[in-house]
Amino acid sequence: MNNPAITNLVISLGAMQVARRIPMEDPQVLTYLRIGYIASQVISLAIYYYITLKIRKRNDLTVLKYVNPASPMNPDAKPELVTTTVKDYDLAETGKAMKSLFMGVAFMCFLHGYLKYTQPLFIQGLMGLKSTLESNPAKLHLFGKKAEGDLARPFKAAGGLMESLTGKAAGPQTDAASIKAAEKAGGKSD
């Protein structure tokens, strides 16, 4: 069960079964659900903040070069060479994860505050914390795993619809030939 998609499905289905048995019409239970959801989001935010502190303390200034592929939606786009440090890359990835967390909170505010759905409070409280603990920055800086395989920088994006249709990985390229070709094309970025 190392596949996050499978564990997400299992936890979601299990949480939905548990949520059906929770009397969400009861105002006291609803208050506890809100407190639980907010607490899980605050814990997730605190974890990401702790990770940023660890990244800054480690201050890994190892140069990282990779080529972002051209956007398939823009035919005039060219692959972009990115030159950064491990510290800056990890901080950027942690920032993306935090933005995703805030987007989830905003969506939940819409679902619960405007549409009055209560069941997602319970499920997203669990899923948000799970996704925080399974994020690549958490694996590297919280659990101390080595940056190899799936955790090698730059991180490989999860396979999406386009990848399944074309069979091509849309993630960054790190091979020397791609980097050299992007340098010749003048696609440098810092």
Rank of each mutant, 00 (worst) to 15 (best):
N2I: 04
N3Y: 12
N8F: 08
L9P: 14
L9V: 07
I11N: 12
S12T: 01
L13V: 10
G14N: 02
E25Y: 04
P27H: 05
L33V: 00
A39M: 07
S40V: 05
S40Y: 10
Q41E: 06
L45A: 07
L45F: 06
Y49I: 06
K54F: 01
I55T: 08
I55F: 11
L61V: 02
L61K: 11
V63S: 10
K65G: 07
P72Y: 06
A77R: 15
K78I: 15
E80R: 12
V82S: 06
V82G: 04
V82H: 15
K96Y: 03
M98T: 12
M98C: 13
M98A: 02
G104A: 11
A106D: 02
M108H: 03
M108R: 12
C109E: 04
H112V: 01
L115N: 09
P120G: 07
L121F: 01
I123Y: 02
Q124P: 00
Q124D: 05
L126C: 02
L126Y: 01
M127K: 00
M127R: 01
G128R: 01
P137R: 00
L140F: 04
L142Y: 00
D150C: 05
D150Y: 00
A157G: 09
G159Q: 04
L161D: 11
S164E: 15
L165F: 14
T166G: 05
G167C: 07
K168H: 05
A170P: 04
G171R: 01
G171D: 06
D175N: 15
D175H: 15
A176G: 11
A177N: 01
K184L: 06
K184F: 10
